[in-house]
Design a protein around this nucleic acid. Sequence first.
DNA 1: CCCAAATTTTGCAACGACTCCAAGTTTTCA
DNA 2: TGAAAACTTGGAGTCGTTGCAAAATTTGGG
Lengths: 213, 213
Amino acid sequence: MAEGLRERKKRETRQRISDIATGLFLEHGFLTVTIADVAEAADVSVNTVYNYFPAKEDLFFDRSAGVVEQLSRWVRGRDEGESAARAVLRELRAEAEAVSPRIGLMQGYDRFMRVIHEAPPLRSRLWSLQQEIHDHLEATLREETGAPDGDPLPGLIAGQISWIHQTVFVTIGREMVAGRNPDEVSREVLVLLDDIEELLSEKVLNYAVRGAQ
Amino acid sequence: MAEGLRERKKRETRQRISDIATGLFLEHGFLTVTIADVAEAADVSVNTVYNYFPAKEDLFFDRSAGVVEQLSRWVRGRDEGESAARAVLRELRAEAEAVSPRIGLMQGYDRFMRVIHEAPPLRSRLWSLQQEIHDHLEATLREETGAPDGDPLPGLIAGQISWIHQTVFVTIGREMVAGRNPDEVSREVLVLLDDIEELLSEKVLNYAVRGAQ
DNA sequence: CCCAAATTTTGCAACGACTCCAAGTTTTCA
DNA sequence: TGAAAACTTGGAGTCGTTGCAAAATTTGGG
């Protein structure tokens, strides 16, 4: 059962369009490649591309599913006695130590970042993504702490934690574009995380401790 | 002598286009008003509009000159013995207490914010502005502290200070859109600034103290 | 006052993202 | 097998934006 022919074809077509588009973008840049180019290369009509992807940017960011909920997941998964911020720091350190491609520590990520850098619509999309991450995290913190409705703290803490996340990603992007290799950047990010932790107040580092209260 | 006929006309034309555009946007929304509408209302050709404004968003944000350097100015103007962050907090408190239109504490600001809220290109522009503010501030902090090139601290502190600024503006925007009046929001912002200050570490609050070292 | 140079305004054509709609084509399922 | 449902396509159109060459306007000098 599971899926019929129609659904499989849809999935395959969508994937093919996305793959081909990403390839073209990485090779020639986001702005120079037109939707018509993508459609032709994928052997579908322009309208079919729009059928699967609401906007050109979605062709590029198709792979970034689940990234919006990432911070919230980390916070929800914090250990007993661990705060929200410390959980995020721990997870980021783990990703950095593992030289994880999930945070961009991989060969070729510089190409990816360069494409984004020179295309304003893609940068916009990233900002929009960060906004979503922040809002999602704020909602999660509200749930986890049961803070009353007018309480500004969940929003402020979400701001601080999003800032950590954002700073790490911007740094990785910058260093990878600068031509450093993943292992170097990994070590650098670990140092950065220490610097960041030292800059945070105890109030931030001890917010939403699991088991407290 | 100053300016001839030509220069005056240019200034006037530019201003007229900007005013008319802003009026139309406030009344009908950014997306529904076309450049052609603006051109017609201002009695010039579409090309003339593009002659003065590189993009449609520039018609809306024309009034926001000097906003990019604002934080840097505040930091450069900090008192003897005062840190960068404390100077910004002080200036923001002063603006809030004065119920200053410069931070949106005025009748009609809700209309303005609503137009931005429902137009993705305008929100993008705001993010782009924030980025500029951050980068400008980071450069200023580097200059003011004489930090060595590889030092990540100016960037991190700039991130924290930009976050303060951003949080205050987002809050004002949200509350004004919610229909609160400027005086109410003013008081609320003063409370918010206290909350924010309590969340910042001593390291942030004591960075770039004038006169120290 | 008049003319040539510099500058601004304008019209026109074109490109690309995106939308809407109606007419095919394919897949499903009874 | 045959009609309904879902997907694809072509075509026309809107809007932001750019490029170019032809007016129209302003300036400065004679």
